[in-house]
Computed example of a mutant assay.
Amino acid sequence: MDWLTAPFEVTFVQRALWGGILVSAICALAGTWVVLRGMAFLGDAMSHGLLPGVALAALLGGNLLLGAVASAAVMAAGVTALGRTPRLSQDTGIGLLFVGMLSIGVIIVSRSQSFAVDLTGILFGDVLAVREQDLLVLGGALLVALLVSVLGHRAFLALAFDPRKAHTLGLRPRLAHAVLLVLLGLAIVASFHIVGTLLVLGLLIAPPAAALPWARGVRGVMALAALLGVTATFGGLLLSWHLSTAAGATVSAVAVALFFLSHTASGLRHLRTRPATPHPTVD
């Protein structure tokens, strides 16, 4: 029991755990729609798109969160604008924004005297450096994410499974898509301080994808994804403490491992429940 509980008797590890719990809940709300709509590449691009704003804020001594929000807004606006260009596929536009924003971010960071240290901190985060005010910000972000998810649930659901029907029902799919981008941006901005811009996709995608084979309905996926995210946070922090590994990366690695375990178990379950094929008889 000491092996399980000793790390969480330390104050900064307790804050890291609470930060991970809040982030897991936020990512479950946004990540479920990302998985259902096949928007993983967009999520990856938006997470990397935070780099210029965060890097500029760090270079100027400003607020990193405000820098991340500014970059997320630019990325969301860019994706929306390029998505309306008929001669350009959405993947192409997202890819161009991805590379462009990442390049600008690295250029800005390269102006810093501690280039490697700053870039590592931004890309991989520092979950063990979570402060009490960070927890308050995450709590507020979770409330906003819950409100957006509840108010937009019907429109998001129709958009995920039948965009044409969403338009027929008067649910304004373009507006719903824009709001969904805001929700995704909120999750990424809230999470980057915990696991960094490079690893945020682990908590955003892996828990909802792991929950899909076992949950019934979108709300069930969200609830199970949040639980799996909390499990990944606890397990990642525990392993990081005992193995002296990077905490944020370990949390993301555990989340991905849970995905593979989930789908392996789901595959074995289907093999056991599959009815045996009757052998043909020869008269």
Rank of each mutant, 00 (worst) to 15 (best):
A6I: 01
P7M: 01
V10L: 14
F12G: 11
L17R: 01
W18Y: 03
G19D: 03
I21H: 03
L22H: 02
L22R: 05
V23F: 01
A28N: 03
A28M: 01
G38P: 10
F41G: 11
L42A: 04
M46Y: 01
G53I: 09
L56A: 15
L66V: 09
L66I: 05
A73H: 03
G78Y: 06
T80H: 05
A81Y: 10
P86I: 07
T92S: 15
G93D: 07
G95L: 01
V106Q: 13
I107K: 02
I108D: 03
S110H: 05
R111F: 13
Q113R: 12
Q113D: 14
A116L: 06
A116K: 10
A116E: 13
V117H: 08
T120E: 15
G121L: 13
L123H: 15
G125N: 10
V130R: 04
V130T: 13
D134C: 03
L136V: 12
G139L: 14
G139D: 08
L142K: 14
L142V: 09
V144L: 15
V148W: 00
H153L: 14
R164P: 07
H167C: 02
T168W: 10
G170W: 14
L171R: 09
R172N: 11
A176M: 05
A178Y: 10
L180F: 07
G185Y: 02
A187T: 00
V189M: 12
V189R: 05
A190V: 01
H193E: 15
H193S: 15
I194N: 06
V195N: 08
V195S: 10
L198D: 15
L198K: 12
L201F: 00
P207N: 04
A209M: 06
R216I: 02
G220S: 07
M222I: 04
L224Y: 05
L228G: 11
A232E: 04
G236H: 11
L238M: 03
G248A: 11
S252L: 06
V254M: 10
V256P: 07
L258H: 08
L258I: 13
G267R: 11
L268H: 02
H270L: 07
H270D: 04
L271I: 02
T273H: 09
R274L: 08
D283N: 13
D283R: 12
